[in-house]
Write a protein that binds this DNA or RNA. Structure first.
Length: 510
RNA sequence: GAGCCAUUAGCUCAGUCGGUAGAGCACCGGACUUUUAAUCCGGGUGUCCCGCGUUCGAGUCGCGGAUGGCUCACCA
């Protein structure tokens, strides 16, 4: 009954045969460096070593050992990570092991490990993942190290890593093979650790102030809440097209109607538009709504959020972006949009009608479509003359009603809204306003948007009848705020391109 | 979408006037028991992005294309 080979042995044999075939099959297509590693892989199997090990219990991270060396010197440790370099000296060798925390040097001696284990260690490659146990000490030259007493291969690496000194510079490859980028460029890990920290701080800040985090749909029957072209997708079972969300706004405001009066959502929006150093087709926003508040409250909230997070993550409200000091300390100045245009463009657009505004714009050499509204012209002047000057944090307020279809009109001027956008290093980093809670006005605004849509403006809002119905039940007066998380991360990590703060930025497929 | 630039070894890059394809790192072999971009000796591993053309001869010149970067346009 139990005659013949044991099941375990059989299993091993099958695995081995499978690997031999596989290795042989692929060898022809590989360059020499990879072929050598596959040969080594095969000899590991031949020697009965599993090159893809199992669970490994560690006692320390590399950085922990370095930070606490005084108290750890002479003690045993078990660590694991990727081998990043080798310096062999005959019967002794040095190697650098990198784990999530950092790097530490390994010291291997034949008289500690024994001939066999030492020989095995010298067959390892840069890039292999190992677990080691040993004793913490300091070399003659003062380098904190682990004298290795035993070593286990946990994962064989079959591809050579980029140059140890120059690393991986090809931007395209860095984004496409972010895993390699993360291995060889420690700064990149740091950026993403900070990104995580920033979002964590944001949640802490809001939760502490009594906001609750919610999740609303990403698949929308109507794409609303922003001026943007949506992605269209299809639900098979329902046989209907759906839009990937361009903003969570209209759902979050339904929650205000429902009585959840302080809500926020952190998540992705999808916009079917251009790609640039500041735009990715999917990006992360945090939208925040507070009932019984207004734009002024949301401006204070914005400043406080930026200041709090900068303090936590960078250690100061004065940060450096691309060599320039940016002072995020509240309060930030406020400036109405028309006043900013008067200041930087020398043009007063106050009280003009559409036609007068178009005429003035053309005189100034701006390209203006014939159906451009007063609001469009104001925005055009702003983008052209004002935006490039807004380096230090500032709130631009009081946007024209035509370009702010979800914001409440100003009490003293129905052509303007109680809206604000903070600008830092010329970027719009957020957008907020006193929310329009008048269903009749909202319906009128949607109709205006639909007219623009009919005139070919693909980014104009769609009519959302259910949202109107929700407002008809009564939405409390409220302030709303949307923060572009990616831009915030760029700012706080000194990253000039949005691709530097996205782990896997959108790339054309190869 | 337009302009400019780039594409050469696994990685980072040189390559002159059109004349047999180069360096460092990595890798392979050897020496070396406290090195650290270890060192020393030996070894060059290549679809020069692709195609067409000019030429006796193209990594190099011309045309077309691909991919990427930057700027502009678009886009909050």
């Amino acid at each position: 009954m139990y005659a013949g080979k044991q099941p375990g042995y059989m299993g091993g044999s099958i695995v081995k045969d499978h690997h031999e075939e596989h290795v042989e099959e692929q060898r022809q297509e590989l360059n020499e460096l990879m072929a050598i590693r596959r040969t080594k892989l095969q000899s590991l199997y031949d020697a009965g070593v599993n090159p893809y090990g199992e669970k490994f219990e560690r006692t320390h991270y590399a950085q922990e050992i370095i930070d606490n060396f005084e108290s750890l010197e002479g003690q045993k440790t078990v660590i694991a990570g990727r081998l990043m370099s080798f310096r062999t000296h005959g019967k002794a060798s040095f190697s650098d092991l990198m784990d999530a925390s950092g790097r530490i040097q390994l010291y291997l001696r034949v008289d500690v490990l024994g001939e066999e284990a030492y020989g095995f260690a010298n067959q390892l490659d840069i890039g292999d993942i190992v677990g080691v146990s040993g004793t913490i000490f300091r070399t003659k030259r003062g380098q904190i190290s682990v004298e290795v007493e035993s070593l286990k291969l946990l994962s064989k690496s079959l591809r050579p890593l980029p140059d140890k000194w120059h690393g991986l510079k090809d931007v395209d490859l860095r984004y496409r093979q972010r895993y390699v980028d993360l291995i060889v460029n420690p700064d990149v890990r740091e950026v993403f650790r900070k990104r995580s920290q920033i979002i964590q701080c944001l949640r802490d800040f809001l939760n502490t102030r009594g906001f609750i985090e919610v999740e609303t749909p990403m698949l929308h029957p109507i794409a609303g809440g922003a001026n943007a072209r949506p992605f269209v997708t299809h639900h098979n079972a329902l046989d209907m097209d759906l839009y990937m969300r361009i903003a969570p706004e209209l759902y979050l405001k339904r929650l205000l109607v429902g009585g959840l009066d302080k809500v926020y959502e952190v998540g992705k929006n999808f916009r079917n538009e251009g790609i640039s150093t500041k735009h990715n087709p999917e990006y992360t926003s945090c939208e925040i709504y507070e009932a019984y508040a207004d734009a002024e409250d949301m401006m204070k909230l914005t400043e406080d959020i930026f200041a709090y997070i900068a303090e936590q993550v960078v250690g100061s409200t004065k940060i450096v972006f691309q060599g320039r000091e940016i002072d995020l300390t509240p309060p930030w100045p406020r400036k109405p949009m028309l006043e900013a245009i008067r200041e930087y463009a020398g043009v007063d657009l106050t009280g003009l009608n559409d036609e007068q505004a178009r005429k003035l714009a053309r005189e100034k050499g701006l390209s203006v479509p014939n159906n451009a509204s007063y609001g469009n012209i104001v925005e055009e002047f702003f983008d052209e003359y004002v935006e490039p000057h807004l380096i230090q944090p500032i709130f631009i307020t009081d946007h024209p009603v035509e370009v702010s279809p979800l914001a409440k009109r100003k009490k003293d001027n129905p052509n303007l809204t109680d809206r604000f956008e903070p600008f830092i290093v010329t970027w719009e980093v957020a957008n907020g306003f006193t929310e329009l809670n008048d269903p009749i006005d909202q319906e009128g605004r949607f109709r205006k948007q639909m007219e623009q849509r009919e005139q070919g403006d693909e980014e104009a809002h769609m009519m959302d009848e259910d949202f109107i119905r929700a407002l008809e039940y009564g939405m409390p007066p409220a302030g709303g705020l949307g923060i572009g998380i990616d831009r915030m991360v760029m700012l706080l990590t000194d990253s000039p391109s949005i691709r530097d703060v996205l782990l896997f930025p959108h790339m054309r497929p190869r």
